[in-house]
């Protein structure tokens, strides 16, 4: 509107943009400098003690194992081809099976947790404020309890001479010895029990926000309760379902303790394979390759999570 030259009398105070942080004017760069000062130490720590070691693992996964179990730094893709079933004597299904089994266990655990966790989430959402806190705390307590203790609790409970097997036997249910433990039933029970809180918490957070008037309206319009639930309620809790499934799937695929203690030899997952290579077999390069595979499974799950929940508020971690 006005001639720009008419303001030459005004001093050009700032050529470079300065920022204000909570009332404090900062020259350019000062803001970043302070951020680096605050965030730097912790981020450096995580880098040194996690990212660098992970880089070592990735590097090692391309190395070879010497005859005495030492590492020979010669580049090879052999570890990965072993992972996909190329053994010394042709196709060897052991390793691909472990990979598939781990992913399968992850999915199965997530699905079972969803089924089992649903009533709990709805139940808690229907409670009064005070009881909600109590119920949520009750969900979190097992999660805060040592996994080893819970796992061996299941061991005690499911063992052939344990309380459950004895009672089932006296009730006339024919059950072979070791039908429950060690093996798949014990592993899956413990898995679901272990990861249930990861499912219940995000699921509950979603159920809590459900607009029930929609389902009531659907019922008013003549929908059967089940249909109303399916079309009016379920879509609303989908974010919680997805978040819960990812939160269960991710750690379940990498589980090591539960299959180790409850699975016997039959149920080896990625975690157990890694442990075996770094422990007994002393084949660190191959163990690293399996670890990288586990890492990739995790990244895939995480990517799925962020792409599905894009734009929504992150579901709080327990």
């Amino acid at each position: 509107m006005a001639d720009p030259t008419s303001h030459t009398s005004l001093k050009r105070r700032r050529r470079i943009r300065r920022t204000v942080h909570f009332g404090e004017p900062m020259p350019p760069g000062a803001h970043t400098f302070r951020a680096a000062w605050l965030c730097g130490p912790a981020l450096a720590w995580v880098t040194v003690f996690l990212l660098v070691p992970l880089a070592f693992v990735i590097a090692l996964s391309f190395a070879q194992r010497g005859d005495a179990g030492e590492v020979v730094w010669r580049f090879t893709l052999e570890n990965y081809s072993r992972l996909f079933g190329n053994g010394a004597l042709g196709f060897d299904p052991v390793q691909p099976l472990i990979l598939a089994r781990s992913i399968g266990v992850g999915f199965a655990t997530a699905l079972l947790c969803l089924l089992v966790g649903m009533p709990v989430a709805f139940f808690i959402a229907g409670l009064t404020r005070r009881w909600k806190t109590v119920a949520l705390t009750l969900v979190i307590i097992p999660f805060g309890t040592n996994l080893l203790i819970r796992t061996y609790g299941w061991q005690t409970l499911l063992s052939p001479e344990g309380w459950l097997a004895q009672n089932l036997a006296s009730a006339g249910v024919p059950l072979a010895d070791y039908a429950l433990y060690p093996g798949w039933p014990a592993v899956m029970l413990a898995m679901v029990c272990d990861y249930l809180p990861f499912m219940i918490l995000p699921l509950y957070a979603s159920v809590e926000k459900v607009d029930w008037s929609l389902s009531e309206a659907a019922e008013d319009l003549g929908a059967a309760p089940l249909r109303a639930f399916w079309h009016a309620v379920l879509p609303q809790i989908r974010p919680g379902m997805i978040a819960g499934c990812v939160l269960v799937f991710l750690p379940a695929t990498g589980q090591f303790v539960i299959p180790d203690l409850l699975g016997g030899a039959k149920v080896a997952l990625l975690g157990n394979a890694v442990q075996q290579q770094f422990g007994g077999s002393r084949d660190w390069p191959f163990g690293s390759a399996i670890a990288v595979a586990a890492l990739l499974v995790m990244l895939a799950g995480l990517w799925l999570h962020t792409s599905v929940t894009k734009g929504r508020r992150e579901v709080a971690l327990p």
Partner: peptide, 30 residues
Amino acid sequence: YEFPFKRIFHHVLHVPVFIPDIVMAVALLL
């Protein structure tokens, strides 16, 4: 505070949360 590559650091921060225990364990052992 805002700083360059904040989003990347945000993701880095989540690595230890989601990484399988056993992978982190062998990485540190190595």
